[in-house]
Simulated scan of single mutants.
Amino acid sequence: MDIKDVIDGAMGPFPDNCAGYMNPPATGPGYIAALKLSVGTVEADMDEGLEGIVSYDRAECEDAYIGQINMLTASSFCGLNGAVWGYDLARHDDLAADDVTARWTLERHDGVPVPIRSIAPLLDAGYRLFGTRDQRRFNPLPGAMVVCANKSRTVNPQKSTTVWAGLAIAIAEDRTSCANLFIEDAADTEASGEKALLDLQQNIARSILRCGQDQGVKYKEIFIGHKALQISSGTVGCSLACVPYVTLPPAAIPTGAAPADLSGMSLGEWEAALRLDPLPPYPDAALI
């Protein structure tokens, strides 16, 4: 599918809120994938189940707001009928140049070097689509059924430990026949040790290229990052790597524009066209 057709077919029924993919009615079979990586904590003063609920809920509410949704877990692909927010449409201004800096490269199965880039612009893009808990924009409709690629880790440590989540997206070279791939990972250093945290991103990138080899898919670039938070005994921590698959609301389309026009807009141009109030800078202090 042409990316413009995907976007035109990814409009949902709610005026001001994103809807979950497959929530009827929509304008077509398309969906938009937006990236989110968060951590949340709560004092360990209830019971294990309740502390897990609240810490997970806080992770959903931190940075890009996706609170109050019924999250349905899916496998981790953005297919031919999907588009990536901040990449395919409302492209992040930091990705506008063709020579976006690579953090390092890895060789894929056919010998071609694949650039590994920071995921920060795509996380910022998701943040600027959904808004924050206190300054919401086009967050998913409260109570909506939202299919998400996701992994999380909740831990109540006996000693100081670090809870973390990693997220990556690999962009397929041929998007007329191949899907983009998401990899999510989450754990804590009490279980996995410090070395796993130090090697995390490289291992995620290696796993992507192995999946590509297994499937016969060539990925042309990978965006990757992780967030980590040190927590102490008496605190429950939750890390969440998540990609909601949504349809957009009419209010997210500038006056006089068609949904497909977002494929030619930068993220900044989209915000300006909608005259959106600026958000605080993306809280990336924990992003590595």
Rank of each mutant, 00 (worst) to 15 (best):
M1R: 12
I7T: 06
G9T: 05
G12N: 11
C18Y: 01
A19E: 09
A19L: 14
P25F: 04
P25L: 09
A26C: 07
Y31N: 12
Y31W: 10
A34W: 07
A34Q: 05
T41R: 03
E43R: 14
E51D: 05
Y56I: 10
R58W: 00
A59M: 00
A59V: 06
C61E: 15
A64L: 08
Q68R: 14
L72W: 07
G79F: 02
G79Q: 00
L80G: 00
A83E: 13
W85P: 00
Y87G: 01
A90W: 02
H92P: 01
A97Y: 02
L106T: 03
D110F: 00
G111M: 01
I116C: 05
I119V: 04
L122K: 03
A125R: 08
R128C: 01
L129Y: 03
L129I: 02
T132W: 01
R136I: 01
N139W: 14
L141D: 08
A144G: 12
V146N: 04
T154E: 10
T161R: 04
V163C: 06
I171C: 13
A179D: 15
F182G: 09
E184V: 15
D185Y: 10
A191G: 11
G193H: 11
E194D: 15
E194N: 05
A196S: 08
L197E: 10
N203K: 12
D214Y: 08
Q215T: 00
V217R: 00
F223S: 13
Q230L: 06
G237R: 10
A241F: 11
A241K: 01
C242H: 09
P254F: 09
A257R: 14
E269M: 02
A272T: 02
A273G: 08
L274P: 01
R275G: 04
A286Y: 08
I288H: 15
